[in-house]
């Protein structure tokens, strides 16, 4: 018997002697047996702690539950940041981008559509596709509507003035409401990929290449591309590991505003992807600037029979998905940007 076989057989002998089937802890039974002690412990603990950690953990455990929806929503940041951060870091090396930045200074609102697809490595067909409609007004807030197979699956409202957010899941007849407090904002800032290497800095840099002209929906555009964009640099790699991100912006030659924004790349193994690898692609199109948006659209108007989700039980609500929060992150990033711009204009 060689040593490997010996080890194996010894292991089998020991397992047979002391091994057991996997044990399952009956928490409910344990709780009922020790009801009094547990009640005392609970009351003592509740008095001493804030809900901060509850929030943080909810994020984590929901991320764990819905990796696909979460990464899908996370990817949105790629594109929308590209829209709203244009004027932030233009370094003047490109006349066109300086013009684009100047034009964007005057934009107050927009609506847009986007198509998002995720395809597992080695596969040809996407395993996740959705269509998105976005509305943004600095006075009222933002809305993102997500559709899968034509069915509205999620509405994410963000009221900037009230600093409140609501995520509605029509198919589940559920909604989630929460304040955009400092804790959330810290999460927003943490996730904000534009902290150090903003897309606009890239588009104003030597890394930006021209793609030439292209007619999109009858509009003549000039294309620009930056490859291997380092996004989510603040995010731990075990959470999200994007690589080879390429972003293309097609600018309307007449209006000097982005007509179409495309983001694509590879996402390596990470928590948000369920430790799977896949490619994503998102195309933001049909962008309309300075449109009048009906105020009523920003009213969630939640039907009476919709149930408010208890954040403490969120993990038990299956696949509702935390990343629905991320559009709010995006909105807040945009809001901060607009606010900064307005302040800058006011100061000049």
């Amino acid at each position: 018997m060689n040593q490997e076989n010996n080890k194996k057989s010894l292991g089998e002998l020991i397992s047979r002697a002391v091994g057991r089937e996997n044990l399952k802890f009956d928490f409910d039974k344990w709780k009922s047996i020790h009801e009094k002690e547990i009640r005392i412990c609970k009351s003592q603990m509740s008095d001493e702690q804030t809900s901060r950690s509850v929030w943080a953990f909810n994020i984590w455990r929901i991320i764990m539950r819905s990796p696909v929806t979460k990464i899908a929503a996370a990817v949105i940041i790629l594109v929308i940041i590209g829209l709203h951060q244009f004027s932030n870091s233009i370094n003047g090396t490109s006349v066109v981008w300086a013009d684009v930045a100047e034009r964007l200074e005057k934009v107050s609102s927009y609506t847009a559509k986007a198509d998002r697809a995720l395809t597992e490595t080695g596969q040809e067909e996407p395993f996740f596709e959705c269509e998105i409609k976005r509305y943004f007004s600095p006075n009222h807030g933002s809305i993102e509507k997500s559709y899968v197979d034509g069915e509205l699956t999620m509405l994410a409202y963000c009221s900037i003035s009230e600093k409140k957010a609501i995520v509605v899941f029509p198919q589940n007849k559920m909604y989630w409401r929460f304040d955009l407090n400092e804790e959330l904002l810290s999460v927003v800032k943490y996730i904000n990929p534009a902290n150090k290497e903003g897309i606009m800095k890239l588009f104003g840099s030597e890394r930006c290449t021209r793609l030439g002209s292209r007619v999109i929906d009858g509009v003549r555009t000039e294309g620009f591309e930056v490859k291997d964009v380092k996004l989510f640099s603040q995010l731990p790699r075990y959470l999200l590991h994007p690589e080879d991100i390429n972003i293309r912006v097609w600018v309307n030659e007449e209006t000097l505003l982005p007509e179409r924004i495309e983001g694509e790349g590879f996402v390596g193994k990470g928590l948000l992807t369920g430790f799977k690898e896949f490619r994503y692609k998102e195309v933001m199109h049909s962008i309309e600037y300075d449109v009048e948006i009906d105020e009523s659209i920003f009213d969630p108007n939640i039907p009476d029979d919709y149930k408010l989700i208890d954040p403490a039980n969120m993990a038990e609500k299956a696949e509702l998905g935390l990343v629905s929060i991320l559009p709010f992150n995006v909105a807040m990033i945009a809001y901060e940007h607009f606010k900064k711009r307005r302040n800058g204009i006011d100061n000049t």
Binding site: Q49, S53, F57, R61, K269, L271
Partner: peptide, 25 residues
């Protein structure tokens, strides 16, 4: 990946403990 998963697991555990300490039995 296993190492990352382990780190994540430990992070989750810490968050669970925070939750318990906030009264979530």
């Amino acid at each position: 990946v296993r190492k990352l998963a382990y780190r994540v697991t430990k992070a989750l555990e810490t968050e669970l403990l925070d939750l318990v300490l906030s009264g979530d039995i």
